[in-house]
């Protein structure tokens, strides 16, 4: 992908922290094991009072002000989320109006999770290049609305965050190189069974419970080590790029245990492998830009070679090799949680 450049990245989270010590677990031992092994000490959680759309709105509004872009110059806005404000219409269209973007702006949602930012980056860039759109906005956000607070394995992991990435057409940008992979045969590894038309939850406790998301962490581990790691290897081999030539590997923050197993198999040094999961949990499609904003803010202002990899729900994965320069990452915004 040529001629499209990431200009700036911002992120917003609910103001309130939820410490893992405040979350229900089967036992105290399981809690300390979760903190130690899965790596989540705290996360941001609004108890469903803020949506992914709200958080992305805050991030985008601040970002557009910081880069001094008139919202009327944005030609495309895409929101990557699996927790939209409504099933219909697409939340990106609501944000088009709320952000003051022009009615000529393309606006739609992409239903992807962990791999979503990489897919979104590819789609926004492709549209900008093909339709000659000068400026684009990629939003990626998630809230833990699909997680049941009673679930002691999935709920503690998932955090709320919204991010915004602004892009512009640029004749002088380095190419972005993508690779994608989908495997619908493993969809049950992470899914929300009654959340759509296939098994519509039309009331009742049991149906509502089945609406909730669930995850088979063993199956996710097998996917990561058996499919994602070799896929990244082949991506790097095809590009003739070595681990040493990459400054940072910005991976989806799935679970520290799984991410560490992947890091070791790929022989990536610890200092090249930033984590945001400790403070924010697994924030799905927001995790890659959130990690850049919170862990690599200063480094992103300089020339960097990054390998970003999103992998998970689908099952799906996407990688992108980025040669970036002067990406401005703004400090994270904390959004006040409205009263009920």
């Amino acid at each position: 992908m040529d001629n499209v450049r990431i200009v700036s990245i911002g992120a917003a989270v609910p103001q309130k922290k939820l410490l893992s010590s405040q979350v229900s677990f089967e036992s105290d031992e399981t809690r300390s094991q979760f903190i130690r092994q899965v790596g989540v000490t705290e996360k941001r959680y609004s108890q469903n009072r803020l949506t992914a759309g709200d958080l992305c709105f805050s991030a985008a509004q601040k970002l557009l002000t910081e880069v001094a872009w008139d919202p009327s110059t944005i030609g495309v806005v895409i929101l990557v989320t699996q927790s939209p404000d409504r099933l219909m219409p697409a939340t990106a269209i609501l944000l088009q109006e709320k952000l003051g973007l022009p009615s000529s702006c393309l606006a739609f949602d992409i239903n992807l999770g962990c791999s979503g930012w990489v897919y979104g980056l590819s789609v926004v860039s492709s549209l900008m290049q093909t339709l000659k759109i000068d400026r684009g906005l990629l939003l990626a956000g998630e809230t833990a609305v699909l997680a049941s607070e009673d679930d002691t394995s999935y709920f503690p992991l998932m955090g709320d965050a919204g991010t915004a990435t602004v892009l512009e057409l640029s004749m002088h940008s380095e190419p972005m190189v993508f690779q994608f992979y989908s495997d619908g045969s493993q969809f049950e590894a992470i899914h929300a069974p009654n959340s759509g038309a296939r098994h519509f939850a039309d009331g009742g406790t049991e149906a509502a419970q089945k609406y909730r998301a669930q995850m088979d962490a063993d199956q996710v581990l097998r996917f990561c080590l058996r499919d994602v790691v070799p896929n990244i290897h082949s991506f790097l081999n095809q590009l003739n790029v070595t681990v040493q030539e990459i400054d940072y590997f910005v991976f989806h923050q799935a679970n520290k245990l799984i991410n560490e197993a992947m890091r070791k198999k790929l022989n990536i040094p610890e200092e090249k492998f930033p984590y945001s999961i400790g403070q924010f949990g697994n924030t799905s499609s927001a995790s890659i830009p959130l990690t850049m904003v919170t862990q690599l803010r200063e480094q992103m202002a300089h020339k960097q070679t990054l390998l970003c990899s999103g992998f998970g729900v689908g099952l799906s994965m996407g990688h992108v090799l980025l040669h970036t320069e002067n990406i401005i990452c703004h400090p994270i915004i904390e959004v006040a949680i409205p009263e009920k």
Binding site: E26, E29, T30, Q33, F34, Q37, V38, S153, A217, D218, L221, R222, L225, N255, L257, I258, E260, A261
Partner: peptide
């Protein structure tokens, strides 16, 4: 203690 974390831990160390 067999739970969703330990089953992953065991798989990781065996691998």
């Amino acid at each position: 203690e067999w739970n969703s974390i330990n089953s992953v831990v065991l798989s990781v160390i065996i691998e």
